[in-house]
Design a binder for these strands. Structure first.
Lengths: 146, 146
DNA sequence: CAGCAACCTCAAGCTAAGTTCAGGTCAAGC
DNA sequence: GCTTGACCTGAACTTAGCTTGAGGTTGCTG
């Protein structure tokens, strides 16, 4: 009856809506881990459905995989996470969401100033010159108001 | 005195904080356009400083280059944009910002429900199951709550 | 026990938004 | 007239978050 709780990757994919390839990718990145059958096929715990669902949600909140990994690391090792464990995690996500909303709100305020004064696009404009980011970042996609 | 208003790429770079390579890239994408000297060097209009600065700001607000191109297309063709033209643009950006803030706020509300009911990570959870996005997207980076 | 779907690995490809590099040209000062 | 710095093109590399493909194995069903 223990074996009953081990599911193959295809089932996990169907239950979470993820592609099989994505799950394998997450395993590579250490976000989930799987046992193997003698035939080298992955078997996951039923509780990994939750784990993967959490990843999906956290992504929608704008977290990157490294951040998600960090968050997941706060779950208790060894035992299957309880509801309370998951609730703790959600609460800490709410804090991050709050921060993001605040940042956007402050940005909107700056934009309002700029519309008022007509300074939009001038060198000293608050919007793009504060804490100067220009040319700071290197290659890769630019992200939203980090 | 007309010639006086044409600036080389290096100057444009210094004035906007952009890398020279970035400006060339934007020209490729059609976000700015340049004349050429007989020696095949780019000369930009002074007003392109504003244009590029606008791009920088719009990026900080989370717009992608295609969206920015669309926004810039609303500027009047043929003549150098006036302050009023720019102000119209900023106002429409403010609307987009508003939408983004609303979306985040609604998401936060959903998260609160989920913390309350403990449903986080369940299949029918509002947070990741609404308007089902799972597996919808294809390759490339996933973006924040589009 | 045959067949077929589901699984495996590893490598290469995709997008966004650029950067970096190699190899060459232009322009201004001494 | 020569050197130095700014400029040119084109190709290859970067990060994130995966997908796609090639070529091969496993495991359940009839």
């Amino acid at each position: 009856m223990d074996r009953n709780d081990l599911i193959p990757i295809g089932v996990l994919a169907r239950r979470t809506g993820l592609a099989v390839s994505a799950i394998r990718f997450y395993e590579d990145r250490g976000l989930v881990c799987a046992m193997r059958t003698m035939g080298n096929q992955r078997r996951f715990l039923r509780s990994d459905i939750r784990r993967l669902s959490f990843i999906l949600i956290a992504q929608r909140l704008g977290l990157g995989l490294p951040a998600i990994e960090e968050a997941l690391a706060t779950l208790p090792q060894g035992r299957t996470p309880t509801l309370t464990d998951w609730q703790k995690l959600s609460r800490s996500m709410r804090a991050q969401l709050d921060a993001k909303i605040q940042l956007l709100t402050r940005t909107r305020a700056k934009l309002d100033e700029c519309i008022g004064c007509g300074c939009l696009s001038l060198q000293r404009c608050q919007l793009y010159n504060r804490d100067d980011r220009a040319g700071a970042a290197g290659p890769g996609p630019r992200f939203v108001l980090d």
